Computed example of a mutant assay.
Amino acid sequence: MKVFQIKSKPQNIDRVNQFIHDKNICIGWPRTGDLTISSSEKIRE
Rank of each mutant, 00 (worst) to 15 (best):
I27M: 07
K9V: 14
S40L: 06
C26S: 08
T36Y: 04
N24L: 09
K9T: 15
K23C: 04
Q18N: 15
D14W: 09
C26V: 14
E41T: 13
I43Q: 02
Q5T: 07
M1T: 15
K42F: 11
L35K: 10
D14K: 00
S38M: 04
D14H: 03
C26R: 06
S8R: 09
D22V: 07
R15S: 13
P10E: 02
T36D: 05
I43C: 03
Q11E: 10
P10Q: 05
K42N: 14
N24P: 00
W29V: 13
E41W: 06
K23F: 02
K23T: 07
H21S: 04
T32N: 12
N17E: 14
I20H: 06
K7F: 02
D34C: 03
T36Q: 07
G33P: 00
I25Q: 02
S8L: 05
S39F: 06
G28N: 07
D34V: 03
R15K: 15
D14Q: 09
Q5P: 01
M1L: 06
P10M: 01
F19C: 04
S38C: 08
C26Y: 12
D34L: 01
T36E: 06
S38L: 05
L35S: 03
L35C: 06
F19E: 02
N12D: 15
R31T: 06
I13L: 15
L35I: 14
Q18W: 10
L35F: 03
H21E: 11
I27V: 08
K9S: 14
T36A: 06
G28H: 03
M1Y: 12
I6H: 10
D14Y: 01
I13R: 13
P10K: 05
S8D: 03
I25E: 01
M1W: 10
E41D: 13
K9P: 00
R44Y: 15
M1C: 08
S39A: 07
E41H: 09
I37S: 04
Q18A: 11
S38W: 14
P10I: 01
E41G: 11
F4S: 08
I43W: 07
D22N: 15
Q5S: 12
K7D: 14
P30L: 14
R44V: 08
K42P: 01
W29R: 10
P10R: 01
S40R: 04
I25S: 02
R15W: 01
K42I: 12
I6V: 13
D22L: 10
L35D: 03
I6M: 04
P10S: 04
N24W: 02
G28V: 01
M1S: 11
I13T: 15
S40P: 06
T36F: 03
T32H: 13
K42D: 14
D14P: 00
Q5A: 08
T32A: 11
I6W: 09
V3T: 03
V3S: 00
I25M: 13
S39H: 14
F19G: 00
F19V: 00
I37L: 05
N17S: 11
Q5R: 05
P10A: 06
